[in-house]
């Protein structure tokens, strides 16, 4: 790993100023993607701005209609939060399936979403619940946030500060994990709100997380496991690699969506 200048700001404002001043700086949350990437020589930032010492950067807040998770909150904190388990149980369950215990102790929601790994779990929850991503500059709807492989709507220097998840009537998360990495080979996050509107967020299947709109349409007519699992997803445009072909992933999307409907609570 190449050396770099290390910064540990106490405020979001200071962090943004440090990044601006750096030649090729990077923000770091838990560091569990950035540091391995740097070890492999795939990234060599001049500066690392560690966001984990920022005051009040983590934490969970609940209102009647919304769960707000601040950017520095770890996966373990989300997985074990009594409030989230009650309000959106599928979200806590999903966070508890990210990596292993040690990864969950360090990894943060803000870091996961900003990195937008095509197989990360949080992007599916953001899309499946219709979340709003708040930054130090603005609020961005999840539907407009994930734009490509490791690509998001974030502008240079922008910092995610919180994610707002509307509390649905029902939700469920289903994941077919890669047995070695625990990343989602394909994962589905489904929700139904009080008005019956269904959202189906999919991760791991394509270059970027997306909404399975065909399944959403089928479930709007008939909210049943069979209705979801009988939708044929086109393999075109999905990922193929040593772990699974695009056709296999396409099949997984419908199968997992069906299981999610059956498990939704």
């Amino acid at each position: 790993m190449e050396n770099f200048n290390y910064h540990r700001p106490a405020t979001v404002l200071a962090a943004a100023a440090m990044l601006k001043k750096s030649k090729d700086g990077k923000y770091m949350g838990g560091g569990h993607t950035l540091l391995p990437t740097m070890k492999q020589g795939l990234a060599s930032p001049t500066d690392i701005i560690d966001l984990t010492a920022i005051k009040n950067f983590g934490g969970i807040k609940l209102s009647k209609t919304m769960v707000t998770i601040k950017a520095g909150t770890t996966h373990m904190e989300v997985a074990t939060s009594k409030e989230i388990k009650k309000a959106i149980p599928a979200l806590a369950e999903m966070a508890g399936k990210i990596g292993g215990v040690h990864v969950r102790h360090k990894g943060t929601i803000g870091g996961s979403i900003a990195n937008a790994d095509p197989a990360a779990d949080y992007p599916s929850a953001c899309l499946g619940l219709g979340a709003t991503i708040e930054t130090n500059k603005r609020k961005i709807e999840a539907d407009k946030f994930f734009t490509g492989m490791f690509e998001t709507a974030l502008k240079a220097g922008e910092i995610i500060t919180a994610v707002h998840f509307p509390i649905p009537k029902k939700s469920a998360h289903q994941k077919f994990p890669n047995p070695a990495s625990r990343y989602a080979l394909t994962g589905v996050f489904l929700s139904q709100d009080a008005k019956g509107k269904v959202r189906v967020g999919v991760t791991g299947a394509a270059a970027s997380a997306f909404r399975a709109t065909d399944i959403e349409a089928a479930l709007a007519k008939d909210f049943s496991a069979k209705s979801a699992s009988s939708v044929k997803i086109a393999a075109k445009g999905l990922m193929s690699d040593m772990h699974a072909t695009a056709a296999y992933r396409a099949h997984l999307v419908s199968v997992l969506a069906g299981r999610a409907v059956a498990a939704a609570k």
Binding site: Y6, L35, V103, H105
Partner: peptide, 19 residues
């Protein structure tokens, strides 16, 4: 490489000493 930092088990190969 697992050690406890402030009471939590973490991977010390993916943690900076300065942090």
């Amino acid at each position: 490489c697992v050690v406890h930092v402030n009471g939590k088990a973490i991977k010390s190969c993916t943690t900076l000493a300065v942090a």
